[in-house]
Computed example of a mutant assay.
Amino acid sequence: MISLREPASARPGTTFHRMLERIRYEGAYSTRERAEEVTYAVLAALGRQLTGEERTELAACLPDEAALVLTGRRPDPEPLTGWGFVKDLASRTGGTPATARWDAGAVLAAVADLAGPALLDRVLAQLPSGYALLFGRAELIQAA
């Protein structure tokens, strides 16, 4: 298995196929086609939540096919919370919130590794609460 800990610019060999294989493994999907279907759904949903430089920079970290899906959707005027994101994904895919949460985690963990920690910090700062866990990070809450 490849290590996806450095920013994508340091890994020019990261292809969409490799990304899908990682998602297939992490999500325990039985076929590459299922992993691809889930990847498209989650990236399109994420693309509806992100705006600005973070959206552009995240797309640049992804393989071309994934970047096109991420940027192929117009951002929603009001971003959803993490839980709202999961419920919206479930309704759009015909799944349950539990399966949508699983799917989001499998895809967004791979996206987080491709983005690297600095960009992921900025992405999470832009999004409402509840996304850190979807990207495989602890959600830290600041004391009042």
Rank of each mutant, 00 (worst) to 15 (best):
L4E: 02
L4Y: 07
E6V: 10
P7R: 01
A8N: 02
S9V: 12
S9A: 09
A10D: 09
A10G: 00
A10I: 00
R11Y: 01
R11S: 03
P12T: 07
G13Y: 13
G13H: 12
G13I: 03
T14R: 02
T14M: 07
T15P: 10
T15D: 10
T15K: 03
F16V: 00
H17I: 04
M19N: 00
L20C: 07
L20E: 09
E21T: 04
R22I: 03
I23C: 09
I23A: 08
I23F: 10
Y25M: 03
E26D: 13
E26N: 03
A28R: 08
A28V: 05
A28D: 11
Y29E: 12
Y29H: 10
Y29K: 04
S30E: 15
S30I: 11
T31N: 11
T31S: 15
R32C: 06
R32V: 13
E33M: 04
E33I: 05
R34W: 09
R34G: 07
R34K: 15
R34L: 14
A35L: 14
A35H: 14
E36A: 13
E36Y: 01
E37M: 09
E37N: 12
E37Y: 08
V38C: 06
V38H: 05
T39V: 12
T39K: 04
Y40F: 02
Y40L: 04
Y40W: 02
A41I: 14
L43G: 02
L43Y: 02
A44K: 13
L46P: 04
G47N: 05
R48Y: 03
Q49D: 12
Q49I: 05
L50S: 05
L50A: 06
L50M: 04
T51P: 01
T51G: 03
G52I: 07
E53C: 00
E53Q: 04
E54G: 01
R55D: 11
R55S: 14
T56N: 10
T56D: 14
E57M: 02
L58Y: 11
